[in-house]
Amino acid sequence: MSNTVLTIANLHAELRAGRKTGPGILRNVSLTVHQGEMHGLVGESGAGKSMIARAILGILPRSILISDGSIDCLGRQMVGLADSDRRKILGRDISLIPQDPLTALNPARRIGAQMTDVMRLHLGWSRARAHDAALALLNEVHIRDAEAVLRRYPHELSGGMRQRVLIATAFACEPKLIIADEPTTALDVTVQKQILRLLREMQNRHGTAILLVTHDLGVVAKMCRSLSVIHSGMIVEQGEVSDIVTRPEHAFTRALFAATPRYDRPADALSPVPGEVVRELEEKAATFDRARAGLS
């Protein structure tokens, strides 16, 4: 389809283990993100959602190898792409909103420099033009006193402001796809809502597709149109948010909803994920690995 921005098809990745194939990290993952859409990738830690993000960006750890499948982004095959070609796309057509706004900014460089460098690199703009663009971006993310903020260092800003700066930088070169990796996990809940609101606003204005990686079902339910649930490196359930939130099909998805505490429900409404559900998925993963080891 011509309006898909990202198509991951049958992606397999394993831990390197000498000659043999190590334990699987991503097992036959497929997912699609359409133009202008926000797609939620939900899973627990270690389920593989961060690995998918890294695989798309090409920054997987050295110990992990993509053994099969394809990642097609805007018509380009990202798996096995040469470094010099990849560097032309990163920051320009695809960008990242990171999880921790404190560590993602270089403490020794001013905010302005960290916003304008990517524009000057990919768009070839002069210092003055990039500076003006940075000012406009800061206004878009509702930062007052933009001129002063550009001159500041990261430690002089609050967590919420830092995240706004990072969001602004992600949109700087008008990318087609943004990967938002747990963008609000490190923030207070009231700040989280403001940032999510901002993200939606920016998305609507720029028409960018966003892959929202999170462990929070609530965030996905409120923000995304479609979602993928991942566990043990496998996509467990996938589809429209409106369907899955109201009628989750897979036992694991149902269990996740039941295990999420709610402030509007009494204490006994919480039930932990049943052991059998997790075991079943782990069995499935083990079988998968054995089959692949048999193949190679």
Partner: peptide
């Protein structure tokens, strides 16, 4: 009220953001 309003529950709610 502000705190409660800011928590996203896992339900569908089109108006929550605004």
């Amino acid at each position: 009220r502000q705190l409660i309003d800011a928590v996203p529950l896992p339900d569908l709610d089109d108006d929550w953001l605004i």
